[in-house]
Design a protein around this nucleic acid. Structure first.
Lengths: 205, 205
DNA sequence: TTGGAATGTTAAACACTGTTTAATTACATT
DNA sequence: AATGTAATTAAACAGTGTTTAACATTCCAA
């Protein structure tokens, strides 16, 4: 079935062509300002064709948000060298925040926008495996901390959600312009200082 | 100038009529799904008229987001009875979170959506006084905690931003569907448990 | 080689969106 | 009653996501 194989390849090619166009437009203009017609223009096809490769616009951005998780996972790789779980936990937060700083639009898509999560919600069978994997990764590190005597009297899951929330809160307030809209004494270092406050707390209990 | 007075009143009336329509539509459908034409239909005027009372759609939702801050401020009133600043701080977080739970769309508008903050950014003269007031209120409570010996070695501003981030993170992950998309052992109590973990930490340092 | 089925692709339309324009209506003042 | 001003509208512009029916291409069996 060599012909079917080639057809399969060609179909895959156009699919990834759409994704590539969507990715580059998304990175320069954001989700809302990237239209189906923009993407179609870029790949020099008619807008209708996109709907033969993706159910709707949400599915395209769900695909892109998956790429974001691969990127984030890639950045997390270096954590393998950090033996002490508490040190690893703190390093993880730093990586998470620097990822958000370097790829604000991607972070927005992954953790703030409704697009990718809506797509999941409308397809009952699939679930948010990207998010669950990332959360599990964090939780297991928190568990290791508990195992060596840290965070006494705390529930792993609750504590993990709290830690995630803290870093997500800091970066999402910034990404959505609330941090910039507050008059801080040192606007450009407030995030780092706040994270320092956080790690200081993690160390002391 | 009785006639001008009446005209002024009438103008104000239509303005608040627009806001009332926008408010009710926004509360039942959200920002994105509330269109200028929807609002115009509701007040039985033509869509164009709205632009004589508001610069654009963002300005309408900026007005509504101000109402949200008044609501939140109202809920915070009871804190006057809490003498101990640390207890007050913890109670504040509870109120903040219950406000978000009871008015998720309003919270979204106040702290997540770009609409109100975009409006501010596009009008260089004005700033986010609602947010700054709320932040100052929180900061002064944190300062009081420090004054009576809590949070040793921490910077007020950084710590305040961290605390805000933690509660904002918890509620915004839920509002934007990320909390629900994670498999927690007890999905419906994770927020409360996470906040409990947080207050336990606040108590212990 | 040809006819028909399947597939890939498009043009056009639908029902919307926010916003601006020019024209119209309503009304107070002269 | 005529005029000038302000309120209001209809219509248009330029876009949006999505669906439809038509068209083009490709493949395979007869």
């Amino acid at each position: 079935m060599g012909i079917n194989d080639r057809k399969e390849r060609e179909k895959e090619e156009l699919r990834s062509l759409i994704l590539a166009a969507a990715r580059s437009l998304f990175l320069e203009k954001g989700v809302e300002k990237t239209s189906i017609r923009n993407i179609a223009d870029k790949i020099e096809y008619s807008p209708g064709i996109i709907y033969h490769y993706f159910k709707d616009k949400n599915e395209i951005f769900h695909s892109l948000h998956q790429e974001g998780f691969l990127q984030l996972l890639g950045k997390m790789k270096v954590l393998g060298t950090v033996e002490n779980p508490l040190e690893r936990l703190k390093a993880m937060g730093k990586i998470y925040m620097s990822f958000a700083k370097e790829n604000p639009d991607m972070y927005d898509l992954m953790f703030i926008k409704e697009a990718p999560i809506d797509h999941i919600a409308h397809h009952k069978e699939e679930d948010w495996k990207e998010g669950n994997n990332t959360f599990s990764f964090l939780r297991s590190t928190v568990q290791e901390c508990i195992d060596i005597g840290n965070f006494k009297g705390h529930d792993v899951e609750a504590l993990t959600y709290m830690i995630w929330s803290t870093v997500h809160g800091m970066v999402s307030l910034r990404i959505r312009g609330r941090c910039e809209a507050i008059y801080f004494e040192n606007q450009d270092t407030i995030m780092e200082e706040a994270y320092l406050s956080f790690t200081k707390i993690l160390d002391s209990f």
